[in-house]
């Protein structure tokens, strides 16, 4: 494996690791409300106390409402709470402060829920929706593409016409329409699975076409022809000779599709067709920005959206690296 590929893969694995264990990295549960702190700005970390002494351990000040009924908050540094690491309450967390203090490094939402925690939990949901949908699309695409490429003739014609049907659709429009046909009365977990299935089911056509192309050229290669003459079964040929040839294409496709499908989930949730309260998804968090007062008043609500840029950059660079590697594979 060449080095840029390894580097970006490592970055991505690290990112996903953090999100996978979001329960540990987040200071609170995604649904935990602090009703005294609706739309509170990010908590500041202090190192210098009131007496002017510097300490290694950061602390936060108590939060109280500004008294002019504007709904704003200010710090009350007569009460301070030290930030502790590896705290264990009912669950263990990477960091936190002692009650009644609260630490919300990315601010809070309308119900006083910690935005950092919601971001971590939401990112887990969106990212894994993208990953699973990609897996699904690629599996379907692989089966269809290999069948079409290997068997040719009528199978090929039917499958590829079907793929064309799907490719000819403006797919975000279709996704939106299809999502609304399906039951909405589902738990967040079921909605998650539904979204994954839906995105995957609509997205199989492009990988299928690419894989078919690789299989078509691959099956003309000498060792496949020889294998066939020696009486190998179709299944054997597909598994032992054809499948290894399409791995590269599948991986490169995956790196391209994952961010696209993460975005699909985000779009659906943004439009109110994804997972609902109290579960967080990046789309839900971004959706709050459709509200005028949030967009204009609370800048910290932008952070989850902006964080998508580095994430997608990592995927983009990995896809690039994969593609470059693919070009060097002698076919």
């Amino acid at each position: 494996m060449n080095s840029p590929l390894r580097r970006w893969l490592a970055v991505l694995v690290a990112i996903h690791f953090i999100f996978l264990f979001c329960g540990f990295f987040a200071p609170y549960d995604e649904a935990e409300q602090d009703r005294a702190a609706s739309y509170a700005p990010p908590t500041k970390l202090h190192f210098v106390d009131v007496a002017g002494r510097f300490g290694i351990r950061p602390f936060v000040c108590a939060r109280k409402e500004v008294e002019d009924s504007s709904g704003g908050y200010e710090e009350d540094c007569s009460h301070t709470y030290a930030v502790r690491f590896f705290v264990s309450g009912t669950k263990s967390h990477l960091f936190g402060v002692d009650a009644p203090g609260r630490i919300s490094l990315l601010g809070t939402d309308g119900l006083g829920r910690d935005q950092l925690s919601r971001f971590l939990f939401g990112a887990r949901l969106s990212l894994f929706a993208g990953l699973l949908a990609t897996t699904l699309a690629l599996i379907v695409g692989l089966i269809v593409g290999m069948a079409a490429g290997f068997y040719g003739s009528i199978v090929d014609t039917v499958l590829m016409r079907l793929a064309e049907l799907f490719l000819a659709l403006p797919w975000i429009y279709l996704l939106l329409a299809v999502r609304a046909f399906l039951p909405l009365h589902l738990s967040p977990e079921q909605t998650f699975l539904l979204l994954v299935t839906l995105i995957g089911a609509i997205g199989w056509a492009r990988p299928a076409r690419l894989i078919r192309g690789v299989v078509l050229s691959g099956k003309q290669r000498n060792f496949v022809l020889v294998g066939r003459n020696l009486g190998a079964t179709d299944f054997y040929l597909l598994r032992r000779h054809i499948l290894p040839q399409v791995y590269g294409v599948v991986l490169a496709q995956a790196a391209l599709l994952v961010p696209q499908y993460i975005l699909s989930e985000i779009t659906l949730s943004f439009l109110g067709l994804g997972v609902g309260e109290p579960a967080a998804s990046l789309g839900n968090l971004l959706g709050a920005l459709q509200q005028y007062h949030v967009l204009t008043s609370y800048w910290w609500m932008f952070i989850p959206g902006i964080s998508l840029i580095p994430l997608f950059l990592a995927y983009f660079l990995m896809a690039n690296a994969l593609q470059r590697r693919l070009e060097f594979i002698p076919i």
Partner: peptide, 9 residues
């Protein structure tokens, strides 16, 4: 890599 959604917002 910047989502359209983010550009729009």
């Amino acid at each position: 890599i910047t989502p359209d959604l983010l550009i729009s917002l």
